[in-house]
């Protein structure tokens, strides 16, 4: 992949207090990455995905102990915003995460569904004790 236009990494303790910081940074990055001809919802979509992903990472890494941290990394390329959220929690098999049971209206379990809905590509990897959710958003309006 080509060299990013710019990149930014934010590392924070596994506390929900930092969620506001993470989402605020996501807005700044996606606003800087977006072009005038992009749909206005892009910044909102990215903020929502980052909120969901960071909440999941904070909850998962909570099981890994008090010193666990969450790493949020943004890379902006020509035509694409790539966001990685990493934690040292237990991890999960993304292919085995079911759709929410919409008919039962559960109180939780919507996060990955929302991320997959608002982002263009979602991957999850676990290596050397680090779990990374990678989310991509296209920065060009489809022709």
């Amino acid at each position: 992949m080509s060299t990013p236009w710019f990149e930014l990494t934010l590392e924070f303790q596994r506390k929900l207090d930092y969620l506001r910081l993470a989402t605020a940074v996501s807005r700044l990055v996606s606003e800087a990455a977006a072009r005038e001809d992009l749909p206005g919802s892009l910044v909102d979509d990215v903020e929502l995905a980052v909120s969901e992903a960071c909440t999941n990472a904070i909850k998962h890494s909570a099981r890994a102990g008090g010193t666990a941290r969450v790493v949020l990394r943004f890379r902006v390329y020509e035509g694409e915003l790539v966001i990685e959220v990493s934690d040292r929690g237990e991890g999960f098999d993304i292919e085995k995460v079911p759709l929410p049971e919409f008919d039962r209206h559960p109180e939780g379990g919507y996060g990955l569904y929302i991320i997959r809905t608002v982002m263009d590509e979602v991957r999850y990897t676990a290596a050397a004790g680090v779990n990374t959710l990678t989310m991509k958003k296209r920065l060009k309006r489809p022709r």
Binding site: E47, E52, H105, E107, G108, Y110
Partner: peptide, 16 residues
Amino acid sequence: DFVDSSGLGSLVACLR
């Protein structure tokens, strides 16, 4: 001005 699924999940819990 912003909600996510955790926030809305709390509404469901309150409703129940």
